[in-house]
Design a binder for these strands. Structure first.
Lengths: 173, 173
DNA sequence: ACTAACATGTAATCTGTTACATGATTGA
DNA sequence: TCAATCATGTAACAGATTACATGTTAGT
């Protein structure tokens, strides 16, 4: 996820680490804040793999900025990651949203394939949420907190499925 | 998150590891599947800390089940975790949902405090989602994938805030 | 005969969190 | 003067992923 986000934002424009951190926080609605101890080692790793290069620039304040630019290899890696999402990236909303944020870089047929995988996941007879081990229907759930969860989950799932179906049709075949 | 889920489900009833895995998957709408390499070491850790005890039972098929029971210490730990959620657990929807699933074990005033923290997070002037570094309004977002993200995020956020306000009022003062 | 579900674990490796470490600029 | 924002990094530790390892039972 971190890697997709870094590569994705760098494809849009060269950025330095601090800026990446802010954009990732915004992208996820501040639900995920990258820590320095995750970000800077990740940048270093990706530099060593040849996906990004850095050049120094004097900072606005404080330490000099390490401006990061995507290499052709990095771009290929981004596309590869977007084309082949893991099960986690398909099933987890936050992870999937990161994919969605950079899906524009794929071809329509590839975009369609990713959206279809997400739709199939959501459509799967997964009857989520349960109390005593068995799936629970909204009306049967007595706990108001779980009722709330269920209600919100059902409503967002419905909305997302409708949107996915529409997009898949537009991207069309 | 894993620990809250394990302790929470075990407060409902003694369970073995495999069953815990299934319940956690259901709880999260299959968005999060605990791997064996995460679950069993976690169980061992929690046993060593005195939060759970195990007793063997012959398996229905396969290996003998290690049925896990919550100790009084484990129960205290669960309550402690529910009362003092981290920023991540407040800000991340999936994490927050796990809290919600076991919030019934807290006192109304404590429940209220947790819901209020979540509401404050959602209400914060965070203007989430962005394209070029600045917050973006729905109408200004050209990328259909990001538009979709934004739309769905706005709608679920609205729904959740309304629900939180209602619950907070019901829980009183 | 094979696959899925049942059931538990370990080991290598990777990644993340948290805390430490440093230091400049801007605004209250 | 103090806090916030800017800006980058390292180190100790905890935790997760993936693959390995083993074996049964029920259904097709």
């Amino acid at each position: 996820m971190l890697e997709v986000a870094i590569l994705g934002f760098l494809k849009e424009a060269p950025l330095h680490g601090y800026e990446l951190k802010q954009r990732i926080a915004m992208l996820t609605g501040h639900a995920y804040r990258v820590s320095d101890g995750a970000l800077y080692p990740a940048i270093l790793r990706m530099e060593q793999r040849g996906w990004i290069v850095r050049h120094q620039e004097r900072g606005e304040a404080a330490a000099p900025r390490q401006v990061l630019t995507l290499t052709p290899d990095g771009e290929q890696e981004l596309l590869r990651l977007l084309r082949n999402p893991s099960e986690l990236e398909i099933s987890n909303s936050s992870q999937f949203n990161v994919l969605l944020a950079f899906l524009k870089y794929l071809q329509p047929a590839e975009q369609r394939a990713v959206l279809k995988r997400r739709l199939e996941f959501l459509e799967g007879a997964r009857s989520f949420f349960q109390a005593g081990g068995k799936p629970v229907k909204l009306v049967e759930e007595a706990d108001p907190f779980r009722r709330g969860m269920l209600q919100m989950a059902i409503s967002s799932s419905r909305k997302e499925k409708a949107w996915l179906r529409e997009m898949i049709e537009v991207l069309g075949e």
